[in-house]
Simulated scan of single mutants.
Amino acid sequence: MASAFVVGGKFRNKVTELLENTDSCLPKRLRGELEEILGEPEPRTLSFSTARTLKQYLQDKGHPFYLHELLEDGSLHLPEVVKPPRNPELVARLERIKAKLANEEYSRITRNVNTQEICRKGTLADFGREVRSVKAVVATVFNFLVTVVAAFACSYMGSQYLFTDTGARVIAAVIAASVVGLAELYVLVRTMEGELGEP
């Protein structure tokens, strides 16, 4: 907390003028304090108590300048805060708490990681599950292709009774195969959504 002012050139000039003035009857104690301040090396500091005494003197004697004018180019003197040394027991305890919190955080982050699954290459059960999954996908794709090709073939063969032109028969077969393919895709997507929606 501030307890003094750092004074500037204006204060030095005015106080020097005040001290040299022979008809000024400064109290001996105040004169000694002011001379001591002027004798200090830079930065010169003026304590609050000396500032109050000087202000009272200037007020009582009716001098043409005031204390705030003297301190106009000065500033507050803020002493350097000296930090007390830290308690070694407290520092050790804080380090233990930090390490404990870091371990808890690490455990929370890695609680769903199974190191046994990472280390082993995979069991037969895992391999069987993957084979079943691949078999299901291959069967679904094969079923889709067979259905679309069969729809095309049936439409092509069946359209011979309606159209005599080959181009018209192919267009009719492509349209029928597209409709069947879209219906098959719709059913497939709905089935996959149902499987993914299960917990």
Rank of each mutant, 00 (worst) to 15 (best):
E198F: 06
S133Y: 07
L38T: 08
R29Y: 10
A173V: 03
G122K: 04
T45Y: 06
E20F: 05
L90A: 02
L90P: 03
R52M: 11
L34K: 05
G8H: 01
S49T: 07
A153Y: 09
P88M: 04
K61R: 14
F65T: 06
T123C: 03
L30Q: 03
V146S: 14
E40P: 08
S155I: 00
V134C: 07
Y66F: 10
Q59P: 03
A102N: 11
N13W: 02
L18T: 01
K83A: 15
E195V: 15
D60I: 02
K98I: 10
G194L: 15
L188V: 11
L76R: 07
P43G: 06
A136C: 01
I171Q: 12
A151F: 00
L19N: 04
I109W: 04
D23H: 11
A139M: 10
F5L: 14
S49A: 09
F5E: 05
A136K: 03
L30E: 07
V187G: 13
S47H: 01
L101K: 07
S47K: 03
V138L: 11
V131C: 10
A172I: 05
P27G: 04
G128H: 05
T16E: 07
A99C: 01
R96W: 04
V148M: 06
G62C: 07
V148N: 06
L162R: 12
K135A: 01
L94D: 03
I118K: 15
Y57M: 01
I118P: 12
E40N: 14
L182R: 07
